[in-house]
Amino acid sequence: MTRSDPRPRPDPSGIDFGTLETLCLLHRTGSFTRTAELLEVNQSAVSYTVDKLRRLFDDPLFVREARRQVPTERCSAIVAEAARMVQDFRRLAAPDSFDPATTHARFVIACNYYERLLIIPPLVHALRQQAPGLQLEIVNSGDEGHDRLLAAEADLLIGPFRRLESGFMSRKLTEERYACLMDPSHPAAGSAPELAAYLEFEHVLITYGGLWKSRYVSELEEMGHAFVPAIRVPSPAGVPELIAGTALVATVPHLLAAHLKGPMRLLPCPVPAPFDVLMVWTRRTHDQPMHRWMRDLIARSAKPHLSAQAAPGSCPDRRTGYPGI
């Protein structure tokens, strides 16, 4: 390939890990401004770094589309390798012991609305007491949480995500199941609905942005029942206000519904569709002292909050492969 930039090509041996980290961060944020803020440098420093990498790889790396820096295919391939290199180097450089009271390390958790509402707040409170210097970043996992782990864009994934292939490890935080949320004036609010009555409800379907289908919907379809909602919404946020004073019924994970419900009535769903909420990480970080400490802290801080509103009963169902709530 003929180089399009007449300036001398940088020496690859002069590219340090800080340069690669800047590239990875820009790939994740899609913004020169945000990347500079996170790195606490001037935006011109980020631009200079990217310009040097563009000359090195003879590729634009990013193109501007709709006010966002969109990576080229070559850029994404470079970032995938660079992120692993940076992560492996950090692992080699990490001390054999970890002192939470004095650390200023950065830890990135990928999760979605459920976890940000129920699991992250008690974790933050615990961190402020035990590791006040630790820099915590929460990123949206969507349906790409495992890819974020593999690309070292996140240190930990939290949610109902299970992948069976080698390279991923997991730890269960709680078991969930679905429940019905409705206005207290609803004719069925007096007792747990039977399946036949449930099918006749005016349903609010939470689509989670179209990234996946909720397990209870899949189970209804497997039973041969058509599920035609009256309203579709992308997120559980605001659902209690939406159904207040109406005959609408929303089927929501029980712990989340218990947190959101306010004056709404919460009843067991006749299609509970149980699933596990997990912490997921890679073998690369499995034995790192900071990562072990963080996983233990998350489990300890979340347990009282989750068990306080735990769904009654238990279910032996341990089916895997469920991609989301």
Results as ranks from 00 to 15, higher is better:
A77N: 06
L38D: 07
E115C: 13
Y48K: 13
I119V: 09
A126R: 08
V252P: 01
F161V: 06
L266W: 10
I119W: 04
V217R: 00
P95I: 11
G321T: 02
L92H: 04
R67G: 10
Q87H: 15
F161C: 01
A257D: 02
N112I: 01
S214L: 03
D11Y: 00
V217N: 00
A101K: 09
H146M: 12
G210W: 08
A189N: 10
M85N: 11
V204K: 01
A250D: 02
L53I: 14
R54P: 15
S235A: 05
R177F: 09
P270G: 10
P95E: 11
T251K: 00
P274Q: 05
L23T: 05
H27P: 02
T103N: 08
E21L: 07
A237L: 00
E200R: 13
S166H: 14
E202D: 15
L173Q: 05
L181W: 01
L53D: 11
Y216A: 00
H225S: 04
L61S: 12
V252E: 01
A189Y: 05
V124H: 13
V108F: 03
A179F: 08
N140E: 15
R64G: 11
I325S: 01
R116Q: 13
I119Y: 07
K261I: 08
F275A: 03
Q43E: 15
M85I: 10
S4L: 15
V50M: 15
E219H: 05
A110R: 04
L195M: 10
V228Y: 07
I120R: 00
N112C: 03
R68C: 15
P289Y: 14
L173S: 01
Q69S: 13
E73M: 14
K172P: 05
S4C: 15
F107I: 10
L20R: 08
L150G: 05
L150E: 12
P263R: 11
E194G: 06
D88C: 06
P270R: 11
D287L: 09
V41D: 09
I158Q: 03
F227P: 02
P71K: 12
G30Q: 06
L20I: 04
M182W: 03
P122L: 14
Y113N: 00
R34C: 09
P253Q: 07
G262H: 09
F17D: 11
T72W: 01
L20N: 02
G190F: 05
H186I: 03
A154C: 02
A151G: 10
T22F: 04
F227K: 06
P132A: 04
Q43A: 14
E165P: 05
G324T: 03
L278S: 07
C24M: 07
I243R: 04
G145A: 05
M182C: 02
L256V: 06
I138R: 05
S13H: 10
D287G: 03
T2W: 09
G245Q: 04
R300F: 15
R64W: 14
K172Q: 13
A105V: 08
T320F: 07
S76Q: 15
P304M: 14
A299Y: 11
A101H: 13
M85E: 13
R91P: 06
E144N: 05
R9S: 09
V46K: 00
L53N: 12
R67F: 12
E176S: 07
E202N: 09
D96C: 02
